[in-house]
């Protein structure tokens, strides 16, 4: 599992992904952590297959007792099917995930972890002095879906929005936006169901100060590429299967 620090300030962001040992028939995912002095948040911790390498990688940055928070952008297996294992590994942790999905996500196993339901209008996660905003992104692609915005680091963790499907071992950052579009087009057209939800999200996201947009698959968008993505996404017709 490759570990890439993407922000160093009063707290740190680290991206985990490009796992060379993962079975080739499961989709490649990016996991992110926010590390403060004594706490650690895991965002979209991933699937069961990825649990051991992910945990091993996180142990380079935090001891299990300081992994106090998990966040699931939505209910998908590539996002959170490892929950039943984290549940037995972390002595005291909370899972922040949509209230709407609670009864579903609990199927993955959630006995000792405290399920903190996120209401439809979002909320926040506080890690010591660091405050992260939970931004609604409903229907993108899941009916109850959230992103994480860090105003200090100016990072938006955007779940499946901005995802790209490409060969394993691709670079961490988008270098050429125009050629990257080819890896994103089908994913967004087919997985994202609603043009209305898309427009609403773009409008809200444009008001945020974002240096980096970090999706759960593919590459991170930096600087102007964030704006390019929003413009491209705005013009894209989604929900094409019907």
């Amino acid at each position: 599992m490759k570990m890439t620090p993407i922000y160093e300030g009063s707290h740190r962001w680290i991206m985990f992904g490009r796992d060379t040992n993962k079975p080739s028939n499961i989709i490649d995912t990016n996991q992110y952590i926010v590390r403060t002095a004594n706490r650690c948040l895991l965002m979209d911790p991933g699937g069961i297959e990825l649990f051991a390498p992910m945990l091993a990688a996180v142990l380079h940055h935090a001891p299990v007792e300081e992994i106090t928070d998990l966040f699931a952008s939505h209910q998908d297996p590539d996002i959170i099917s490892s929950l039943g294992l984290w549940d037995q590994a972390l002595p005291k942790a909370k899972l922040h995930a949509s209230s709407l999905w609670e009864g579903f996500i609990r199927h993955f196993g959630c006995e000792s972890i405290d399920y903190v339901g996120i209401p439809d209008n979002g909320g926040k996660i506080k890690l010591e002095s660091t405050e992260l905003k939970i931004i609604p992104a409903h229907y993108l692609h899941s009916s109850a879906n959230f992103h994480i915005y860090d105003a200090e680091a100016k990072i938006l963790m955007s779940g499946d929005v901005g995802a790209a499907l490409e060969a394993s071992g691709a670079p961490i950052y988008v270098d050429n936006f125009d050629s990257h579009i080819d890896h994103m087009r089908f994913f967004h057209q087919r997985w994202m169901p609603s043009n209305q939800a898309k427009r609403d999200w773009i409008e809200r996201i444009r008001k945020l100060d974002i240096d980096m947009m970090a999706p759960q698959h593919g590459r991170i968008f930096k600087g102007d590429n964030v704006k390019r993505f929003l413009d491209w996404f705005e013009g894209l017709e989604v929900g094409i299967a019907v």
């Binding site: 649990f51 051991a52 390498p53 945990l55 091993a56 990688a57 142990l59 380079h60 940055h61 935090a62 001891p63 299990v64 007792e65 294992l85 037995q88 590994a89 972390l90 002595p91």
Partner: peptide, 22 residues
Amino acid sequence: DKFQTATKMAEGAQYQSSLQTS
């Protein structure tokens, strides 16, 4: 099983031993 695998994979990690209690 997975914890044991993770412990092996975390060889050299600063917090490797923190998993022992679990």
